[in-house]
Design a binder for these strands. Sequence first.
DNA 1: AACCTGACTCGCC
DNA 2: AGGCGAGCCAGGT
Length: 106
Amino acid sequence: MTTFDRVYEAVKLIPRGSVATYGQVAEAIGNKRLARVVGYALHANPQPGVIPCHRVVMKDGAMSDGFAFGGAGRQAELLRAEGVTFLDDTHVDMARHRVRALPLIQ
DNA sequence: AACCTGACTCGCC
DNA sequence: AGGCGAGCCAGGT
């Protein structure tokens, strides 16, 4: 079980209609400082259809605009389709949709 | 094989 | 309050 695998496991556990921050995912795999690695893990090998990487956003609810699997804005579209609400065009309503607790991955 | 860099976050000036 | 550096992992050069 590599670090990347744990990242994927954690991300797959995010409930539909909810979002988690990179920091929360990092915390779920045992080290909150891995936030950066979480982002890179998703970039490196986001198995399409398996890993819901659109449910992972930055701590303020914004998504990284330089890269998004289908283009910036695509992520917001997918989230809206799940019932996630937004404070504005680029920020998820974290108070309502951020996961309370993420299970710890082995 | 060493070095650089990249979807982040937090603490210290 | 805003800017800067550190910590972390993997893959490419």
